[in-house]
Structure formats: C-alpha cells, structure tokens
Nucleic acid binder design. Structure first.
Lengths: 204, 204
DNA sequence: ACCTGAACACCGTTCAAGT
DNA sequence: ACCTGAACACCGTTCAAGT
C-alpha cells in the first residue's frame, strides 16, 4: 500500500537534517527513504536524483545566508563587525557551508556581503578601482579565514613536528614567541586582529 | 598466471596519476587495478585499503611541499615573495591540495612556511606574542586566499545577480567602481595587494 | 610473500507496473 | 500524479585458494 503523499519540502527537510547531523556522505538515497518511510524510488519523483537533491540543499543554504547587518560608528568598525557576524553564521552550519564551497557557490553566497562592503568602503572615502580592490581583499580575507579555521578543527592530532619546531634557535632567542606559538591559537581574536590590520591598511 | 610483482611505490604512482588527471573520485580500486594490469585484490596487499591509499597520497603531497625560499631585501618583501611562491606551488597541484585540505592536514603542510615566517617577522623587529600573531595572520591569509581562489575557478557560470548588483545607486554614484567590480578579478594582483596590505599593518 | 577470482554487502538509477 | 519492488551496473572489501 502506498504511503501518504510525500512533498518536495519534506524530502529536502529530512535530507538537510541528515546532512547537518552526519555530513553529506551519510545522505544515501536508501537511508533517506528509510527516514521518510517511503520507497527509495519515490524520492526520485520529487527531486530528480541525488545530485540535484544536493544542489537543492546548497541553494537553500545560500538563500539562508542573506541578512547580516553591520554595527558600529566608523566604516572600519562596521566592516569588522560585519566580518565577525559572518564568521559566526558560517560556523553555525559547517557541513552545509562545506557543501556550498564544494559546489563552487561560496562567491554567490557572499553577494549580499559584498554589497554591504561596497557601501562601507564608499563611506570611508574610497572610489573607483581602489574601492573595488578593498572590497575584494576583505571578502577574500573573511571567506578564506573561515575555510582555514574549519580545516584546523577537523584536523587530526598534530604531528610531533609541531612542537619540535619551537625547540631550536627561536626558543632561546625569543622564549615568549616560542610559548605563544606552542599555545593553540584563539581564532576569534586572530580573526578580528587580521581583519582590523587589513582594513586599516586598505582604508588608509 | 600472476603478473610480475607489484610494488607499493608503483601503486602510489599510478594512483597519484589518476588523481592528478581526473580527481579523487576517479580513483576506484577497479580502475586502478586495470591501470596496473593486476587483480583488484592485489592492491590491498600493498596499501591496505582505499582510505589508507588516499592517506598515503596526501602524505606524499605534504612532503613534496617543503622547500620554498623567499627572496628580497626587506622582511616585508621576503614575506610577500614567500607568499607568491607558495601560491604558485599550491596551484600546480589542485586536486592533491584539495585532498590535503579535506584530510585536515593543510596546517601541517604549512609548517616549513611558518618557520620561514618566524624568521622574517623576527628580522622585522617583532617579538613575543606580537610576532606570533603576525605569523599566524599571514599564514591564514595565504592559505585562505588560495582556497577561495580555487573555489572561484571551479564555480559554474555566475548567476545574473552578479551583474544586477551594480546597476543600482552605486553605478550612478561611482561608475569606475561599478566597472571595476563588473570585470573579473586579477587574482595574482589581488593576492599581492592583500598580503602587502596585511604585512604593512602587522610590521608597522 | 604476493597474486587471484568468487562472493558479499553496499550504492545510485531505471523501468514496468500499480493505483 | 505519485508510489512501488525488481533489476542493473557499479562500488569497496573479505576470503579461501593458489604459487
């Protein structure tokens, strides 16, 4: 006996839940069907195939990442606050963001951010190609940082080489540096510091 | 009749070739066996299973990315040249670098670079935690940029939203900016400009 | 020590058949 | 219009058997 009619939304919701909890590899058509209580083949009616199902999930994520508003009084402060807000949102959806990245849509996801950046560098008095460079540099900086940071978190235990590195000449010469690099980085602090440094140069 | 003895190196070389040409998804145990002219199961004798075969390829790539030497007279110039050399090397092995990234070993691959950066920020007169911050900020900047850049290149045709963005108020107010952002970015130029801006701030 | 084919448990997808 | 099970061509891996 057929089950009550499935909807495309129901399929996408359940698929998104599987991806959020266990990553995209855990999304098999058979597991999804089991979760939905339907035959595997019913899914095909609603979403085509596995690839376009993933496409749809990615598209939904891109849409969701729209509305982050900067705060602060100076353009520099507003750019930094935008960057920090963005980083927070991205980090709340790691698997889905990774999928957006793998689908090559990171840039499109950042269109609203770019629009805001244009407004702020303009307010800071930059014009023309100088303004365009600043917008692009900040955008690359933000996206790049989050990608690297995610990678660090997924990394397995660091190899011994990490500590070895600071036992040589550097440690004798500058023990404070050696200690600082031996400690794990504080990503939030490093992120803010990096964006501030870049923005200071670019808006100068 | 059994074929002449396979070696682990031969398996790794052939696997690396398949990955370089068609990406990691094209590396199936059956295709690899066909390429080697052996039975599928012979591969397991030499490399364990598919996962540890991929691990071995990643490890090889990490080792290969060791020796990039900076040039230039000032620390800032040397850091920029290091960054540019690194970017070039990374871009020569896109699939393998993506695999290193996915295995969470990007950071480990960058240990030699970090060592060089320490030397240069030191030469610039930075000490202690200030030096550590500078090293980390530059490293994140370089790695992040290359990851974002790769993503851009893989991206499918941009959605119409890209052009729409610059037809509004901004275009009227600052046509030079609108034109600059409508043109495709020059990544090499943007990269150099970004690293220079960051380094200028950090070493100031 | 190393190579082999058969077999197993998975996977995405297609298809003909239901209602 | 939508759901279904059977079947197909793949996949990684295990195993018992060769030499």
């Amino acid at each position: 006996m057929p089950r009550a009619a499935l909807t495309r939304e129901e399929v996408l919701d359940t698929a998104a839940e599987l991806v959020k909890q266990h990553g995209p590899d855990a999304l098999t058509m058979r597991k999804l069907a089991a979760e939905l209580g339907s035959a595997v083949t019913s899914i095909y009616w609603h979403v085509g195939n596995r690839e376009s199902l993933l496409d749809a999930l990615v598209e939904r994520t891109v849409q969701e990442m729209g509305a982050i508003r900067p705060t602060g009084r100076t353009p520099a402060a507003r750019i930094v606050s935008l960057a920090r807000g963005l980083r927070r949102e991205l980090r709340a959806r790691p698997h889905l963001i990774a999928m957006v990245h793998e689908h090559g849509l990171t840039e499109r996801m950042f269109l609203p951010v770019r629009r805001t950046l244009v407004r702020e560098v303009h307010a800071a008095g930059l014009r023309g190609s100088r303004a365009a460079d600043a917008v692009r540099a900040v955008q690359f900086q933000i996206v790049g940082f989050v990608l690297v940071e995610r990678n660090r978190e997924r990394a397995p235990v660091q190899s011994p080489a990490e500590e070895e590195l600071w036992t040589g000449a550097t440690a004798d010469e500058d023990p404070a540096l050696a200690r600082a690099l031996a400690r794990p980085a504080d990503p939030e602090r490093l992120f803010t510091l990096s964006v501030e440094a870049l923005v200071t140069s670019l808006l100068a």
